[in-house]
Nucleic acid binder design. Structure first.
Lengths: 235, 235
DNA sequence: ATAGCGTATATTGGATCCAATCAACAATTG
DNA sequence: CAATTGTTGATTGGATCCAATATACGCTAT
């Protein structure tokens, strides 16, 4: 009988972890992959999602595709029309405004709850993420880093559902990141404000930190709104 | 050939409307019915939802049931465990706190956007709903009226996704209404505050209106939290 | 010529069937 | 006797098949 040393458990855990996320069901796999593709802008708004086509592409039958589409519908990433199928929801100036209205309501609330309980580790993680963003070129990775930075600020809010909602809205905002980069250029991603938020949070100056966050979001909302306005005027 | 008079259209529209919501797919039907049952507290948290059982009860096959459960999962009303099935999410003091944290972030924001644009019709509708609530005994109907009253205040916010999210959270709050009524008794449902909010909104005193709303939500959150604390202490 | 109606085809919605997985219990081994 | 390993029954996940519906096109009648 083999002795159960602690080493066994930890090395096994490492091996399992390095194997990467393993989808336990086909539905899970399709849903996660499709969602990422939509959020990263690899599937444009308005695209019709044919069940059979997706099934072939993913190497599964139509059924897990259908269940995945249902979940994406509930996340407002696809529109379902009975007997007409699923269509990737369109993005627009109006939708962006909605997204920012929601974020401007939720994120300051989460930040306020989190600030008093933030640890040194949280703040360090935030600083690391800022540094990574400075070096990153790929817009998709940039979006992920930005999302994780914001979440690191809210990590100690202690309200799981609130945080889940915030994360979902942050992910939805990724669909607009490309426009933000197109309008502003990649160096000007408000890293100063990110640093200022961290600084204020570290000093537990909640009012100031939240004020910067609000201004940060407001600015981003304005940038994207202007981008859409000038673009739509051209057509 | 029959002449198309305007009367035809209006009377037909009436008939169709009176016929009630007609579900175009079995999935829609199952999803709406199940969601209502969960939110109204007719299915307790922790209940395992067997697919075959539900299929028999609704007179459909397991497939529309599965798709409906997927959507409810995305709405955080059921928990899915691979190969173990769906379970109605548990309610708790913590979950209630989450729900109120989200509502306290979203609803004041929606109210602020809506107040300047509220019409006389909106305000009248609000008054009607308050009157109906005074007369209503059934807690389920009471929850629906309360939800519709709040939504009438936010109706002109002009942000569809924000409003959809608010409505979803208001519906989720219905699961706690029974506790609220148990703790406070049905006459004391803060109708004074409802009236005060309407009054302030009518006079376009945004600050005051929003202040009352925040206090209103805070009070409700405290009531439910106390209820859970005393109940859990008994066990 | 055009509005309305009927038909054909593609696509989705739903049902049934089979395979995979989990939980509980029995058996076995040290 | 305890812990692990098979084994069995119930339940979910996935595949295939059939039915229902929407869109496009062609036809007819005024």
């Amino acid at each position: 009988m083999p002795v159960h040393r602690d080493d066994d458990r930890s090395s096994l855990a490492e091996i399992a972890r390095d194997a990467g996320p393993r989808y336990r069901t086909a539905t899970e796999y399709v849903e996660a992959t499709l969602r990422a593709a939509i959020l990263e802008g690899r599937i444009a708004g308005g695209t019709a999602l044919r069940q059979e086509e997706l099934a072939d592409a993913f190497g599964v039958s139509r059924m897990p595709v259908r269940e995945a589409l249902r979940q994406l519908e509930a996340q407002a990433l696809v529109d379902f029309m009975p007997h007409r199928g699923a269509v990737v929801t369109e993005i627009s100036a109006d939708d962006a405004a909605d997204n920012y209205a929601i974020r401007m309501a939720l994120e300051p609330a989460a930040f306020a709850l989190s600030i008093p309980a933030l640890t040194a580790e949280d703040l360090d993680r935030g600083r690391e993420l800022i540094a990574e963003m400075d070096a990153e070129q790929d817009p998709v990775r940039l979006g992920e880093l930005n999302r994780r930075f914001h979440m690191s600020l809210y990590a100690r809010a202690g309200r799981v559902k609130l945080l889940a909602l915030v994360e979902q809205q942050l992910a939805a905002a990724d669909r607009y990141l490309r426009f933000h980069l197109a309008a502003k250029g990649r160096d000007h991603l408000s890293q100063d404000e990110h640093r200022a938020m961290l600084d204020a949070a570290e000093k537990r100056e909640a009012e100031r930190a939240i004020g910067i966050l609000k201004a940060h979001l407001e600015k981003a909302a304005t940038t994207i709104d202007e981008f859409f306005r000038t673009r739509d005027r051209r057509s």
